[in-house]
Simulated scan of single mutants.
Amino acid sequence: MESLSIDEGGFMHQPRAIVFVDADNQSPVLGSLLLRFLASIGRDDVQCFIAGNGSGDRVNAWRASLEDTKPDVQVVAHVTPLRKQSADVRLVFEMATLYHSQPDPQTVILVVSRDDLLLAAAESLHVLGHHVLIVLGGSATTVPLATELPVLVLPLPQPPAQPLPKEEAPPVTVEPQSPQVAEAVDSRVVSATISKIRQTLVQSKGGGYAASAVGHLLSQMGYDREMRTRILQSIPNLREAVVGADKILFF
């Protein structure tokens, strides 16, 4: 692709926007924002020069961002050696054609970088009468550039807000409760009760006493439900068994 077309009078009529992108300095997510801005000011004919060093990943990302937004955009991409400012120097070479041509009022030049070398080249074009803008990605807190050129700051897309972690209630430790032990009953009361049961009730065929009969007897002896339970729990070697439909107490 030819870099720039200059007529005999030294005026450039196409493209109407020329963009120089330092791929190592500015994020490729700006590509779509930049093209939408140019469309909003009536610059639909766009030629972009992109340069970056290393593997070329960022150059390719910039190209993809531009072409996905505007398939007919003209892109000239350069992957330069991995040396300091090698991408900047390549872009300056592309700007040289403009430096030696008459300013075209139909053309706006955009330099997407904040590197000093490219800023100096842009200021030189401005001094010659070219319409030049510096383009950066950032926010209201972006550090301003030391330049008299107009600077366009395009807002970088913000990552989706992460939900704040929910405050978890401190774990509740539940102390295991020891099984309640019935208050001990006077051993004389227990002995008297056992004697009364054995004297009054008849053991079942397999031995032991029906629990219902024992409860009824203790009730007749004047003990309430709580006291009956305490007395039974105080009987030494008491055990329970179910025989048929009856619960039998053995002691």
Rank of each mutant, 00 (worst) to 15 (best):
P71H: 11
H100F: 09
K70Y: 06
Q74K: 11
Q106N: 09
H131P: 04
V108H: 00
V111S: 00
L82C: 05
L119R: 10
R114M: 02
S124C: 05
G129R: 02
Q106P: 01
L91I: 11
A121T: 13
S113G: 05
V153S: 07
A120E: 08
L154C: 09
D115I: 08
L152K: 11
M95N: 13
D115A: 11
G137L: 03
P150Q: 05
L164P: 01
D68P: 00
L91N: 02
Q158R: 12
M95W: 10
K84V: 11
P150E: 03
Q102E: 01
F93Q: 14
L133S: 06
L136A: 01
V76Q: 01
P81E: 15
A161K: 04
V132F: 13
S101G: 04
Q162E: 08
V73Y: 02
V143G: 01
P157H: 06
P105F: 08
A120G: 10
A96F: 11
E94W: 00
V76M: 03
V132R: 02
G138F: 01
S124Q: 14
S113T: 04
L110Y: 00
D68C: 07
S101Y: 06
A64I: 13
I109V: 10
P81I: 08
H131R: 12
S113P: 04
A140K: 12
A122L: 09
R83Y: 10
S113M: 11
V143A: 10
G138Y: 06
A120N: 06
V108R: 00
K84E: 15
L66C: 06
S65G: 13
D116N: 08
A122W: 02
V92A: 14
L149Y: 11
Q158Y: 01
P150C: 05
V89G: 06
L145H: 05
D104N: 12
F93T: 13
R83S: 11
L119N: 05
S139P: 06
P157W: 03
T141D: 15
L125G: 14
W62I: 00
V73Q: 00
V151Y: 07
A121Y: 10
H126K: 11
G129M: 03
H126P: 02
D72E: 14
P163V: 04
Q74V: 07
M95P: 09
I134V: 15
D72R: 13
L118C: 07
T141I: 09
D116C: 07
P81Y: 13
S86Y: 05
V111L: 01
H131D: 12
Q74H: 13
V135Y: 00
A121P: 09
D72T: 14
L82V: 07
L118Q: 08
L125R: 09
E167F: 07
R83E: 15
P157N: 15
V111T: 06
L133C: 15
L98K: 08
I109T: 11
L125F: 12
D68K: 10
E148M: 10
L149E: 06
L125A: 15
S124R: 12
H131S: 07
Y99R: 09
W62G: 01
V76L: 02
A121I: 04
R63E: 15
H78I: 05
D72S: 11
A161N: 02
P144I: 15
S65Y: 05
T142K: 13
A64S: 09
F93W: 14
R114C: 04
V143H: 08
D116S: 12
D116A: 12
L133D: 11
V112S: 00
